[in-house]
Each structure stands twice: as C-alpha cells, then as structure tokens.
Design a protein around this nucleic acid. Structure first.
Lengths: 211, 211
DNA sequence: GTCTATACAACGATAGAC
DNA sequence: GTCTATCGTTGTATAGAC
C-alpha cells in the first residue's frame, strides 16, 4: 500500500542524512544509506533512480524541516541585537544536530555535481529569504544599508555563518574566537543605529561617496 | 636516483590537487590521481602509504606554494582599504586557480578524518597568521578592536572568505552580491578610523560596555 | 624506484522471484 | 513494493619481476 512506500522513501531520506553526518560524503553509498535506514539496498534505485538523486531530495527535505521552527521567531525579531541572539541560537542548534557536517558535505559535493549544487542553493535560500525579509524590516531606515544592499547583506551573513561552521570543523578554538569577534563587530551596526540625525546624515553621505 | 623519487612525489602531490579540483573528493582515488600524474597507481602506496596520507601532504604543500607570493605584499599594506583590495585580489586569483574548490573538498573531508582536519587547519593558519600580524599593525590604535580581539577578527575574516568561496560554488550571483555587501560594510571600519578624538573615545566606551 | 599482475572488498545498477 | 542474486566496475593494497 501507499503508506509502505512513503515510509520507505522517508526512511531512505533520513538514512541519507544520517550517513552523510556519520561517515561523510566518501562513506555514503547506496549500501551504507540502506543499512542505516534498515531497508534493502535495491530500494534506493527503485525509489530514487540513483544515489545523487536521493541526496538531492534529502538536501531539500531536511532543510525545510530544520528551518520551519525558526520562521515565526524571525518575524518577531525587533532589533539587530535580537537577530544576533537568534542567529547564535540557530547556529548552536544546527551544530548540535549535526547539520553543520551535512551542509559541508553538500557544499563540497556540489562542486562536482551541478544538480546537487542547485539543490544546495535552493536549501540555503530557505534560510536566506526569511533572513532577508527580517533585515529589510530592521534596516529600512538605517544609514548602513541602502535598500538594494539588503539582498547582498543577507547573503554575506549566510556565507559568514557557513564559513564559521566549516572553520569550526577544523579548528574549534579558532571558530569560537571568530564568532566572538563577529558578535563584537555587530555591535558597531547597533551603535550606528543609535546615532543622532546629524551624525546619521554625515555617515550616509560618507558611505554613498565610497561606493 | 634521488631526483626521480622527488619528481614522482611532486607529480603525485600535484596530481592529487588537480584531481580534487576536477573531480571532487568522491572522484579522487589512487587510480585517478596516478592517471592525472602520469605515474603508476602502486606508487601512491609506495611513497605515501595511503590516499588520505597523500591528501594530507598535498594540502599543506599546495597552500605553502600559494601563500608565499602574497606575504611580502601583506606586510606593505598601510590601511584597511588597501588590505581589502589585496583580499579581493587574493580571492579572485585563488578562484581562478581552482583552489577554492580544492579547499572545499578538504574542509568537507576533514569532518570524517581527524588527521586531514589537522592538516587543513595548519594550511589555513598559513593564511591567517600573516593576516593577523597585518591587522595587529593596522588596528593597534583603533577603537574597533581591543588588542586581544585581533586573533578572533583574523579568524572571522578567514571564515567569512571561506564561506564566500563555498557559497559562490552553489550560487555565483549570490556570492557576488555578498562580496559587494561585505566591501561596503568594511567601509564602516574605515569611517570609524577617521573619527575625531572625542567621537573615538565615546565609541570605545560604548563598545567596552557591550562586551 | 617503478612496473605488472593480482587479491579482495565495496561500489552502482539490474533481472527476476515473490 | 520488496527481496535475493548477480553482473561488471572501481576501489585499496600488496607481491614479485625488473
């Protein structure tokens, strides 16, 4: 019946993520995924056609699942400080759940597989687009960002977190130091937002001049 | 004779990097590396013992080679603006040389192999330590950074570039937008450095308060 | 040091019974 | 839909001739 099939597909998707997390991209195969999922190896090909195709679907599905609980909280953020706190919380939870490792495997695998690259980009957009909407709201009258810049700032923030995640993977102490430094620098933006009108106008002019 | 051996080792190291660049970590094996290097497959094991061991050595050697030409220029940098320009230039050259892809493969592979993680961290330190010395020099009297922060800022900058590199791999347009945004934000630090003494003292106090 | 040849494990993928 | 059985390929690694 239908339920069995849907269940097997889900088990394989979940098994793919778990295998990527525990054994890395080099240790991920139809056999190891099926063993983790507790199903037969041939079912990978019956349901998904190939291993890369399964990985593509797993990439998107798993991210949707992870982003969902944070969407409402992003909409309620009222200051850069609050956004920073939420970002730190998301970062800690993603790391604890092992999703940082999985993201690294997808980003690396994407270089050799254009379709996986597109799936990875789509998964990242699930994080970036809500972030962009939040930044639009918070920076609407800040001298730091022209409206057109928010698109780039959202992607820069996402890229910085991705880099931090990977850097932590090879140098945990360095990663912590980097995160601390980023948080201190973020205070700069907050300070700017507390400036008086004269200083704001001067800063805005100075920034305009330099682009 | 000795020359032949050294030559074969170098060919294998160069072949390992090229294979990683062209076929990704999943397509990198003793056979594919040897084919790229134009030597026999068995020599991978004779000279390095195993494929991961060859990759470790390739990671360090290749980075040393890439960093060297930029060391002198880092020491001559006299402002944040100049440092940013140099960073953009390094970024462009590294990408053109295909080293971004290679770094992604190492960072991902590091999650499954602690020894490769240590080699990757050591390779990144080759970039980070000169950067840290440069920042120490430039930010010695800036209100943006306490002396103790420079360690973290250098690693945050490195992490941000790593993230940017990987993000570009899955979303080139987004990567460009992020780089543009980072450059505009970097102007903020420059503006701060041009403040008068009163404003500097106020900012320094405000930043101290928030850490 | 380098080569050929080979052992053996794990891989992707499919055919066919159930 | 799921299983067993199996094909051919590719992987690591080693032994032994040169």
């Amino acid at each position: 019946m239908m339920v069995g099939m849907a269940d097997t597909r889900q088990r394989l998707i979940h098994g793919a993520i778990a295998t990527l997390r525990e054994r890395g991209i080099t240790g991920t195969s139809a056999r190891t995924i099926a063993a983790t999922a507790g199903v037969n190896q041939a079912l990978v090909f019956y349901h998904f056609g190939s291993v890369p195709e399964l990985l593509k679907q797993a990439c998107l599905t798993a991210t949707e699942f992870r982003v969902a609980p944070f969407l409402a909280r992003m909409e309620q953020v009222r200051s850069l400080r609050e956004l920073l706190d939420l970002g730190r919380e998301i970062h800690a939870e993603e790391r604890a759940a092992g999703n940082v490792t999985v993201r690294a495997q997808f980003l690396a695998g994407a270089h050799a597989d254009p379709e996986l690259a597109e799936a990875t980009a789509a998964a990242l957009r699930l994080w970036i687009e809500p972030l962009e909407r939040t930044l639009e709201r918070l920076l609407s009258d800040s001298p730091v960002a022209e409206p057109a810049d928010v698109h780039g700032i959202a992607r820069a923030v996402a890229a910085a977190f991705i880099g931090l995640e990977l850097f932590e993977g090879v140098d945990p102490e360095g990663g912590r130091a980097a995160l601390d430094a980023l948080e201190r620098l973020a205070v700069l933006a907050e300070v700017v937002d507390e400036l008086g009108p004269v200083a704001r106008r001067a800063l805005r002019a100075r920034l305009r001049r330099s682009r």
